[in-house]
Amino acid sequence: MTGATGFVGKAVVQRMLADSKSQRVVVSVRRIGRQWPEQVVPCVTGDLEPSTDWSRALNGVAAVVHCAARVHIMHDTEADPLTAFRTVNVEGTLNLARQAAAAGVKRFVFISSVKVNGERTAPGTPFTEADAPNPQDAYGQSKHEAEQGLHRIAAETGMEVVIIRPPLVYGPGVKANFAALMRAVQRGWPLPLGAVHNQRSLVALDNLVDFTITCITHPQAANQTFLVSDGQDLSTTELVRGMAQAAGVPARMLSVPVWALQAGAKLLCKGDAVQRLCGNLQVDIAKARRLLGWVPPVSVEDGLRRAMGRQTEV
Results as ranks from 00 to 15, higher is better:
residue 176 A to C: 10
residue 18 A to R: 06
residue 302 D to E: 15
residue 281 L to Y: 06
residue 268 L to V: 11
residue 195 A to T: 03
residue 57 A to T: 04
residue 149 G to E: 09
residue 296 P to Y: 02
residue 274 V to R: 01
residue 183 R to E: 15
residue 262 Q to T: 11
residue 224 Q to E: 15
residue 247 A to H: 01
residue 190 P to E: 05
residue 154 A to Q: 00
residue 70 R to S: 03
residue 56 R to A: 15
residue 65 V to Y: 03
residue 172 P to Y: 10
residue 200 R to M: 06
residue 229 S to Q: 07
residue 253 M to K: 10
residue 41 V to F: 07
residue 284 D to C: 14
residue 248 G to C: 12
residue 285 I to C: 03
residue 55 S to Y: 13
residue 32 I to M: 14
residue 294 W to P: 02
residue 271 G to M: 02
residue 257 P to I: 03
residue 181 L to H: 01
residue 81 P to Y: 06
residue 167 P to Q: 08
residue 251 A to M: 06
residue 224 Q to L: 11
residue 221 A to P: 03
residue 276 R to L: 06
residue 107 R to M: 04
residue 137 D to P: 06
residue 254 L to I: 15
residue 249 V to K: 05
residue 18 A to M: 04
residue 86 R to W: 10
residue 180 A to S: 14
residue 137 D to W: 06
residue 188 G to L: 07
residue 159 M to Q: 05
residue 173 G to M: 09
residue 179 A to R: 15
residue 200 R to S: 04
residue 290 R to Q: 14
residue 19 D to I: 09
residue 295 V to K: 11
residue 10 K to M: 10
residue 49 E to P: 02
residue 206 D to C: 05
residue 60 G to I: 12
residue 189 W to E: 12
residue 270 K to V: 04
residue 137 D to T: 10
residue 267 L to T: 07
residue 196 V to R: 00
residue 133 P to M: 11
residue 113 S to M: 05
residue 59 N to W: 13
residue 123 P to Y: 08
residue 112 S to N: 08
residue 128 T to D: 08
residue 202 L to M: 11
residue 250 P to N: 07
residue 126 P to Q: 02
residue 24 R to A: 12
residue 79 A to V: 13
residue 1 M to P: 02
residue 150 L to R: 01
residue 168 L to A: 13
residue 222 A to I: 11
residue 126 P to Y: 01
residue 19 D to E: 15
residue 2 T to W: 00
residue 38 E to V: 12
residue 155 A to G: 11
residue 132 A to C: 09
residue 155 A to W: 09
residue 211 F to A: 03
residue 169 V to M: 02
residue 262 Q to V: 12
residue 153 I to A: 05
residue 284 D to G: 07
residue 58 L to Y: 05
residue 297 P to L: 05
residue 20 S to V: 10
residue 53 D to P: 07
residue 242 G to I: 04
residue 98 R to T: 13
residue 13 V to N: 00
residue 209 V to S: 00
residue 219 P to F: 07
residue 195 A to D: 07
residue 20 S to H: 13
residue 90 V to D: 01
residue 291 L to Y: 09
residue 21 K to M: 11
